[in-house]
Computed example of a mutant assay.
Amino acid sequence: MTHPTSGRPDAADSPADPSASPSSASSAEPVARHVEDATDDGRRRTIRSFVLRAGRMGTGQQRALETLGPKFVLPYQAAPLDPGAVFGRQAPLVLEIGFGMGAATAEIAAGRPDTDFIGVEVHTPGVGSLLKLIGENGLANLRIIQHDAVEVLEHMVPPGMLAGVHIFFPDPWHKKKHNKRRLIQPSFVNKLVTRLSPGGYLHCATDWQPYAEQMLEVLSAEPALVNTAEGYAPKPAYRPLTKFENRGLKLGHGVWDLVFTRR
């Protein structure tokens, strides 16, 4: 559901079976640039945790981009965002990194009208899909930024602005040699935590157990975060249980939620 989730299929539509997870499919890419690696000559290079791929656009998605995009898609800017000006009110703000096709994002926004949401996604069909849902459901508390989430965090989100962050089903990068591309890494989490207000929460979810274990290790090691559970958390009521997830659970497959708060 990255950039952190992303060009991947909607996290709300992600199956709980890791062997069949859309987050590992060829069309999947989470949304973040978060890892630096050394080249042979000692220079630093950035490793992206997403890969942009072409996707098909439906007529409804294309129409939504044209008609609703100017109002609901915020342009990337190298300057702090003013949520009050964007939403016309003062309300808690939650950032979602990588919302896929946006079904869960729209459902969460509809169920929490007193909270404002900004979804970050690089995949154009996903942006079009969520815009279509915004129009169909009249969601005034939801906006989109189509850009690299790390740059959004660095330049548009000042410290302490966020009441919450959602990262649902980011690409697990199954192969060990690709694990460094995973979104949830210490350096990224440290940057993310600074954008949370005291008491703000970080909610991650994955259907890939090795990634869940890494998430738990990384989040538990961040001194500014406190786990709300003994290990993995029960699924919060606001996160929709999708048909794919429900099917996987009935087959005995796992989904792991992690909810931490900032000290």
Results as ranks from 00 to 15, higher is better:
1 M>Q: 04
3 H>K: 07
3 H>Q: 10
6 S>N: 13
10 D>L: 02
10 D>I: 00
16 A>S: 11
16 A>F: 06
17 D>C: 01
18 P>G: 08
19 S>V: 04
20 A>C: 05
22 P>N: 10
22 P>R: 01
25 A>T: 12
27 S>G: 07
28 A>F: 04
30 P>T: 02
33 R>Y: 13
35 V>D: 15
41 D>T: 10
44 R>M: 05
46 T>F: 12
49 S>V: 05
51 V>G: 09
52 L>T: 12
58 G>Y: 03
60 G>L: 03
60 G>K: 10
60 G>M: 05
60 G>C: 02
61 Q>M: 02
64 A>E: 15
68 L>T: 15
70 P>T: 05
70 P>L: 06
73 V>F: 11
75 P>M: 12
75 P>W: 12
76 Y>H: 13
77 Q>I: 02
78 A>I: 14
80 P>S: 01
80 P>G: 02
81 L>P: 03
82 D>Q: 05
85 A>V: 06
86 V>G: 10
87 F>K: 03
92 P>Y: 12
92 P>M: 14
96 E>Q: 14
96 E>S: 06
99 F>M: 09
102 G>V: 00
102 G>T: 00
103 A>P: 05
104 A>I: 01
107 E>G: 06
108 I>A: 04
109 A>L: 03
111 G>W: 13
121 E>M: 04
122 V>E: 09
123 H>N: 06
128 G>M: 06
129 S>P: 14
129 S>A: 11
131 L>M: 07
133 L>G: 02
136 E>Q: 02
136 E>N: 07
137 N>P: 11
139 L>V: 11
140 A>L: 11
140 A>W: 06
142 L>H: 06
143 R>L: 08
145 I>Y: 03
147 H>F: 10
148 D>P: 09
153 L>A: 10
155 H>P: 08
156 M>W: 04
157 V>T: 13
159 P>G: 05
161 M>Y: 14
162 L>P: 06
162 L>W: 02
163 A>E: 15
163 A>M: 12
164 G>Y: 00
166 H>A: 11
166 H>W: 14
167 I>P: 04
169 F>Q: 02
170 P>Q: 00
171 D>K: 04
171 D>Y: 15
179 N>M: 09
179 N>E: 07
184 I>D: 00
185 Q>K: 11
186 P>K: 05
187 S>V: 12
191 K>D: 09
192 L>R: 10
195 R>P: 15
198 P>D: 13
199 G>N: 14
200 G>D: 07
203 H>D: 02
205 A>Q: 09
206 T>E: 01
207 D>P: 07
207 D>M: 00
209 Q>V: 01
209 Q>S: 02
211 Y>N: 05
211 Y>F: 15
211 Y>H: 10
222 E>S: 07
225 L>R: 03
227 N>D: 08
228 T>E: 15
228 T>Y: 14
229 A>T: 15
229 A>N: 11
229 A>K: 15
230 E>S: 06
232 Y>T: 13
233 A>V: 07
233 A>D: 14
235 K>V: 03
237 A>E: 14
239 R>I: 05
240 P>M: 01
241 L>D: 13
242 T>Y: 01
244 F>N: 01
244 F>A: 03
245 E>T: 07
247 R>C: 09
249 L>W: 15
249 L>R: 12
249 L>S: 07
251 L>Q: 07
252 G>S: 10
252 G>M: 07
258 L>I: 11
260 F>K: 08
260 F>R: 12
261 T>Q: 14
